[in-house]
Amino acid sequence: MKKAIVQIKDLKKVIKGKEIIKGLTFDIYPGEVFGFLGPNGAGKTTTIRMMVGLTSASAGDAIIDGNSIQNNFEKAVSKVGAIVENPDMYKFLSGYQNLKQYARMVSATDSRIDEIVKLVGLENAIHNKVKTYSLGMRQRLGLAQALLHHPSVLILDEPTNGLDPAGIRELRDYLRKLAREEDIAVIVSSHLLSEMELMCDRIGIVEKGKLVKVEDMNEFIHGDNQETQVTFQVEPLDLAERHVREQFPNSQVAIKDNGLVLSINREEISEVSSFLLHNGVRIYGIQSKAKSLEDRFLEVTSQ
């Protein structure tokens, strides 16, 4: 296992006597895309604000590449590129002039600016004023400023906001590439669950200021003991149904579209099949419907 690049340690935030973030602890590793999920008001943005030092933590700390964001802010944040909520830039300046502003603060060269502008595909509009930009273009510019100084950690709050489907796909591919090829840890928060499912390697679910779950995306969706809906194309259908109800009284059984639908886990699929074959039922097909992240997310957060 790689060494964690971001360590969140019992992070807490109290605002006006109310505990908004109730002690989050998790690690993020280089080369992974980490999804930060949660319903509105769960504390995602507050956590991100604490991770980049915009808001002070009431207790706990965020350690970035060994440096505490609380006590060694400049060193810690020099490894971070971020967009917090909207990519708000100076609208009366051009995209290029905006990047120049940030470049001066992190000592990035002009050739680095050109490189990054090309990377986010803004060459044609970079000398226009930002007020003429669409939201999608502002997101790209936001990404450009976040990457200017070769960060090891990229934090993006709702990055797909305002992007069209092609833009979302491009961003997704690009983030995955950044993680794989440059070993950057990418932290993405979003409400768009289907997007997160495609984008992330690991997810953390926050709810009411608590971390409900941190898990590998695949394990989370199709964990070993997860029941999935399995459809058996069998003949004769009524015989199969009767046998199954007798043999597996605890399973949910239904008939849908001329198929026998069962809620069972992985191991049980082969059990059910061999049982059916032994009882003279012919099987023409077995389909197991994977749960989406959305299904699992709702399961977890509604507990």
Binding site: G53, F73, K75, V77, S78, A82, V84, D88, Y90, M105
Partner: peptide, 14 residues
Amino acid sequence: STGTIKLLLIRPIH
């Protein structure tokens, strides 16, 4: 008021 303070304060500068 324009929100630009966020991108200003996340630079490695006191």
